[in-house]
Amino acid sequence: MKNRENDVLPYDMIEIILLQLPVKSLLRFKSVSKSWEATISDRKFAANHLRQSKKKNDSFDDGQDDLLLWVGKSSMDFLVFNLDPSKNCRWEMKSLSVLCYCDGLVLLHRHLPYDGSIYRLWNPSSKSEVNISCDPRIHRGGGHDYADVAQGLYYDQSVEDYKIVVTDMKNRYSIYRMRKKLWSDEMKEMEIDIPGEVVWCDKGSSFEGDTYWVVRTRASGKEESFLVCFDSKREKFEKWGMPIGDNDDCKFYLTYLGSRLCLAYSKTKMNQLWFVKRVAGGGSGSGGSWVEFEEAMPLSRNYIKPLRLTNDKEIARED
């Protein structure tokens, strides 16, 4: 072997190369030297790496490291598998349920029969996990009441940190900062009007830094669905009406197609799909933005199950 001189490449160029490696290789190369370990462990590096992989996955046809998460019917068992079949791996976890996911991180809830419950943030690609105690101000039942609480997981670019938002979907919420390992000092007011009682609330869907939930309420004998959004930049909740009126036997739910967030509507033999879009400016007049529904698929009499977006931005569906 031809031995090269020391410092084959200057350090800033090595960093550019490292940014393009998958997580598994990066963790292995922490053993190369102390300075490589320091670079790879640095949180600025981690933030750049995340940005780089997001850019790469924008053309999601080559999303080799994309993890596909399948949640079982009971939501108690789930499997994770890679789109590259040679890297398939499966996890089946007992006493854990999936609450939400964001950038390949999964927020789980762990039931502990006697000692209350905890959240667990799990990173399948680095196989690491962190336990987080529930906020007792929201979880008055010591965490057994997790079904009455809505959660969201998002990445706050301004502080380069992941955050968890939990709310009772009535009037209060609190935020957990992963790096500080703390819930917010005070409970905050949601400042939106949720009429009557909450009948059903979907898992939180993280999209472009914000979190969305479909919430169904019952007030004076009438049921109605809303889209509730947590705008993470302004730390404000918003409530949006659905694009079409609903009645008792229909269902709205959120789903991801490629890199888009979609709102789906299904009623017996009536189905429709919209892209959820956040449009800047105007709106409430507070310099914010509003949510628009862009029709992705017109009303159809066939039952559909959207699968994914193709490269031509067509919707592949299962009839």
Binding site: R4, N6, L9, I14, F29, V32, S33, K34, W36
Partner: peptide, 14 residues
């Protein structure tokens, strides 16, 4: 790890 050290000319300081 050994391959990377040789190719990049990096000294193992652990």
């Amino acid at each position: 790890v050994g391959w990377v050290r040789r190719k990049f000319g990096i000294e193992n300081d652990y």
